[in-house]
Amino acid sequence: MIRSIRGAVVALSSSLLLAAAPAAVAQAPYPAKPVRLVVPFSAGSATDILARIIGTKMSEGGTYQVIVDNRPGAGGTLGATGVAKAAPDGYTLILVSVGHAINATLYPRLAYDTVKDFAPVSLVATVPNVLVVSAGSKYKSVHDLVTAARAAPGKLNFDSAGSGSSTHLSGEMFRMQAGIDIVHIPYKGTGEALTDVMAGRGDMMFAPTVSAMPFVRQGKLRALAVTTARRSSSLPDIPTVAESGLPGYAFDSWFGILAPAGTPKEIVDTLNADIGKALAAPDVRERLAAQGAEPKRSSPQEFASYIQAEIGKLAPVIRQSGALAGQ
C-alpha cells in the first residue's frame, strides 16, 4: 500500500514537472534564442545587404544573434507569407522594401493581408534608385538615353529585379514621363539584372544604390542619375532624373522591419530600441552611407502609417504601368 502511494506521488510529481516545463520556456525573458531575419530576396540584393549590416550590429551586443535567412520568390511575397504565418514571439522577423507596399496592389489575391498580418517594428533606411548603364556604354546622360529611345522605339531595354519591383516601377515612370518606348526585361533578382547590364546585355537599370554603387566605384557601371526628388546626401555628385530633363520625376525606395501580427508590444519595443542602437552606431552609418543609404528609424506606429500611405500613393502608378497581375 505504502509502495503504491509512493509510486503515485512520484508519477504525479513527474507529470507536474513536465507540465511546468513549457510554461517555464514561455516565461523566459526575451530574447532567449537567435532571431531569424527573413530577407524575401536573393543574396546580394539591396534588402540582403542592409539586413546583414544591421543584423551583424544587433548581434554584437551579445544578448542574442540575428540570423539572416534568404527566402526569395514571387516578388518578395513568398518570404512575407512565411513570416505572416510564423509564431508571433519575436523570433521571426522580415526586412521588407517598398515592394511590400507595391505588392498590396500588384497581387489582388495575396496569401496574407499586407497591413493586418504584420506588426511594424521600425523603418530602417531610405535608398534612392540610381539609373546605371555599363561602363562601356555609349550613353553618358539621361538625355542620351531619351534621344536614342525616341530615335529607335522598342530597341532599348531596361532590366529590373522583377515585375512590379521598385526597379521596374522606376523604369516605367521614366518611360511614361519621357514618352518613350523601351522594353522591360524582368529578372529574378537585382544581382542577376546588374550582371547583364555590366556585360552590356541590358541597356540600363534603375537599381538600388546599395547594390549598384560598389560596381560604379569599381568602374563596372556608370551612374547617370538618382530617382529621388533631391540629390542624395551620400551621392552629391550624381544629378537627379528630374534635373536631367524630366521635371517632376521622383521615386523613393525604403526598407523596414516587420514582425508577425500579434507579437507582444514589449517585444516590438525591445526590437525597435535595438534597431535604433544599431542605426545610431557610427560604423553602421558609415557603411550605409557608402551604399547610398540613409538610416531612418521610426516608431512602430509611424512605420504603420507610412506603409499605409505608400500603398495609397503607389497604387495608381502600378495600374498605369500595366504591371498589375492579370493585366
Rank of each mutant, 00 (worst) to 15 (best):
A278C: 01
T270M: 12
A259T: 09
L258D: 06
P264N: 06
A280K: 08
D269S: 15
L271V: 14
P282N: 04
D269E: 11
L288S: 03
L279I: 08
A259D: 03
N272C: 03
I267R: 14
L271T: 06
V284I: 08
A281E: 09
P260Y: 11
G262K: 02
P282G: 01
E286S: 14
I257W: 06
A278R: 00
P264D: 01
I275C: 04
A280L: 04
V268K: 02
P282M: 09
T263A: 07
L258M: 14
A278G: 06
N272V: 02
G276S: 04
A280C: 09
D269C: 13
K277C: 04
A280T: 07
R287C: 04
E286N: 12
A281D: 13
K265G: 14
K265W: 14
R285S: 01
L271A: 11
K265V: 15
K277V: 04
K277E: 11
L258R: 10
P264S: 02
I267Y: 01
V284A: 00
R285F: 00
D269F: 11
L279Y: 02
A273M: 10
V268R: 15
P264K: 10
I257V: 10
E266L: 15
G262P: 05
K265M: 13
A280F: 00
L288H: 03
I267N: 07
A259Q: 15
R287V: 04
R285W: 02
D269R: 12
G276C: 09
T263Q: 07
P260D: 11
P264H: 14
E266S: 14
A273E: 08
I257N: 06
G276P: 11
V284F: 01
K277A: 12
R285V: 07
R287M: 04
P260C: 07
E266A: 15
L279D: 00
I267P: 05
L258S: 10
A280Y: 01
L258F: 14
I267D: 02
E286R: 11
G262W: 09
D283K: 00
T270F: 13
K265F: 13
D274P: 06
A259P: 03
A273K: 10
D283E: 09
A261P: 12
L279W: 06
D274I: 10
V284C: 03
A261L: 09
P260K: 14
T263N: 02
I257A: 09
T270I: 13
D269G: 08
I257Q: 00
D269A: 14
D269N: 11
T270Y: 14
N272W: 07
I257S: 07
K265Y: 13
I267F: 01
A259V: 08
I275G: 04
T263R: 04
K265L: 15
P264R: 07
G262D: 12
D283F: 03
R287T: 12
A261W: 06
E266C: 14
T263M: 10
V268Y: 06
L258E: 05
L279C: 03
